[in-house]
């Protein structure tokens, strides 16, 4: 079932346009981005708007993450301390980005509850880190709709069990035979009023992409 969640956004290949709105205490901003994915471990995301950051892009291949900085025309590999940093100024960390597609690799899941939310039956799983997995979370509580196994929420807890942030999925639509939440919202629970929302404006599964598309060279060339 977790595999199903993991595979949620990934068809064989996809291209999408996305808007990301970030609200913090000090500022609000909206980014327009274009993204390509192949399988579960290759993705490339590029900023279209605002102009100042246009061309800045992130490449993920397996667990490696690279960022191309258009302003300085340099590519850097994100590692170590940088993994915990905010991705493109949002409430997602680089680490969230890399891990979100691979929950089943790092976590053991146990069914911890069933219930009915907004008229739909859901399963609730508690994910605990596998031994030796280098993860920052103490546990993640995942809620999945029973009817179609769509995830509706993930709540991230720290090692003391306190809820730190919640990721919720909304606006489920069917595109080329796949059901996909068109919007997801990350709420940092320690910072009330702040949020990041990512919303698809276009999503296309009908394209073919080669693995070579997801290269550091292409990160810059796009």
């Amino acid at each position: 079932m977790l595999q199903a969640v993991d595979d949620l956004y990934r068809g064989q290949a996809s291209r999408a346009r996305v808007t990301m709105s970030v609200t913090t205490k000090h500022w609000t901003r909206t980014l327009e981005m274009e993204s390509w994915t192949l399988g579960t471990d290759r993705s490339l995301i590029r900023i279209l708007q605002p102009k100042k950051e246009r061309g800045t892009a992130t490449l993920m291949v397996a667990r490696d993450l690279f960022t191309y900085l258009s302003k300085t025309d340099r590519t850097i590999k994100i590692s170590g301390a940088m993994m915990g940093g905010a991705w493109m100024g949002s409430h997602f960390t680089n680490d969230d980005l890399v891990r979100s597609s691979r929950l089943s690799e790092d976590f053991d899941a146990t069914l911890s509850g069933r219930g009915v939310v907004e008229g739909a039956e859901i399963y609730q799983f508690t994910l605990t880190p596998k031994e030796g997995a280098a993860v920052v979370w103490g546990k993640i509580v995942v809620s999945i709709r029973a009817a179609d196994l769509m995830p509706i929420a993930q709540v991230f807890h720290d090692e003391d069990g306190a809820a730190i942030k919640s990721l919720t999925f909304h606006d489920f639509r069917t595109v080329q035979g796949r059901t996909v939440p068109f919007s997801m919202r990350m709420l940092p629970l320690d910072k009330p009023g702040e949020s990041t929302e990512i919303r698809y404006t276009e999503l296309d599964y009908g394209i073919a992409l080669k693995p070579s598309f997801f290269s550091v060279q292409n990160l810059r060339a796009l």
């Binding site: 605002p50 900085l69 302003k71 300085t72």
Partner: peptide
Amino acid sequence: IVLSQAADGSMAND
């Protein structure tokens, strides 16, 4: 290369 988050939320890099 220096990377940070600018006060306006944008990606600071230079």
